[in-house]
Simulated assay, not measured.
Amino acid sequence: MDKQTMILSELLKQKRESQGYSLRQLSSVVGVSFSTLARIERGDGEPDNNTKIRILEWLGDDARRAGLKFDSVALVHFRARKQIDSETVQGLLRVADYLKGKYGSNSVHAVNEQSGHEQDLDAAISLSKDEMEEMAELFRQELGLSENERLDAFRLQIEGVKVLSLEEVTDIDSQLKSQLLNFGRQSWSAMSVPLEENTDRWAIVWNSSQSTRRQSVSLLEEIWHILLGHKLTRITKVADVYGRTFAEAEEHDAYYVAAATLLPAGVIKKLVEQRGDVSEIAAKYGTTPELVEYRIKRLGLWRQYKGMKIILKPEK
């Protein structure tokens, strides 16, 4: 254990004891498992970066005074390519700051202080395929859409959720907007910003410089994260910025339900049965051929779609 980790370990124990927390109570506050906190306090091994940042956030000024490096964590979620550049990330964070200032009350870069009551931060709930298909079907029914009707994701209105294209975000620097819609246009699709922590008030900004066919699933994915009650609990690094994201299982589920909402299961099954044209279905439902093929695979129909026959060889 290096010197900085030793200091971290000492500060963690001191603050925990001074505030009267047991290790199990502190675990629910900072979102780090009881066993990991116990190992750190014993000086047993190095905490991973995700754990270290969570503890540093909780230690706050105590960590700063002790000279420990402190990285604030941006409370936003990006739908972006892995190779997104630093300038684009910083630009999106400026937009997020503006949105929180206009529609919320907390700074995007504020330290994510947790209250003392128990919070189950890491309990990602993974849904079954049947559950997700049913959710998508009920969502379409609630909107009054039949199986054969196209869903225009950009017309959706969700209570407590402000949905804007970047072009509709007024009063931000025109140079910044131009940079995000031109130079950085290919590296991001959408961004969701919690306007108030621990509430369901969000803003979603989508990249209006990209094809709406590609953007529709990105927008719906962000909406489904909110509708499924997902929380930004996982820390990751995007370019040179630490941010919170959703658990991997939640990323999968939100994308799956978004795709199923745009492309109903019955439509995909009929497409495969009738040997239909993927491009025609994509055009009719305002999506991409790639998303149609994703649905075919996820419904377990790829072999039938490709006409791959199977037989048993005669016994010798």
Rank of each mutant, 00 (worst) to 15 (best):
T51H: 06
E197F: 02
T88Y: 00
Y305I: 00
F70M: 14
D200G: 11
V272N: 02
K306H: 04
I226P: 00
E251N: 08
L127S: 13
Q141K: 13
Y285C: 04
H109K: 02
Q210K: 14
K162V: 14
L93H: 01
R24K: 13
L68G: 03
N49H: 09
E290C: 00
T170H: 06
V272T: 04
E315D: 11
G43P: 04
P47C: 12
A124W: 04
W188N: 06
A283R: 06
D44E: 15
S189L: 12
K177C: 08
K3Q: 11
L93N: 04
Q186A: 14
L164W: 07
V217F: 00
S35Y: 09
A66I: 09
P289L: 05
A203N: 11
K15Q: 15
K3H: 09
A249T: 15
V111H: 03
Q114W: 06
I268F: 00
G91N: 09
R303K: 09
G307K: 02
G229I: 12
K13W: 09
E196G: 01
I268K: 00
L56K: 06
L92A: 02
T5W: 01
S9H: 04
L312R: 07
D171C: 09
H109C: 03
T288E: 10
E159P: 01
W58F: 12
V193S: 07
K129A: 11
G286W: 00
S22E: 13
R64M: 10
Q83Y: 12
V95S: 03
A249I: 10
A259R: 00
Q215K: 07
Q210M: 13
V205F: 07
R79S: 09
T170I: 10
R54L: 15
E57K: 06
E159L: 06
A66Y: 05
V29M: 12
E251I: 07
K269Y: 08
M1G: 06
A124M: 10
M6D: 12
I235S: 05
S146D: 15
F70K: 07
A38D: 14
I311T: 10
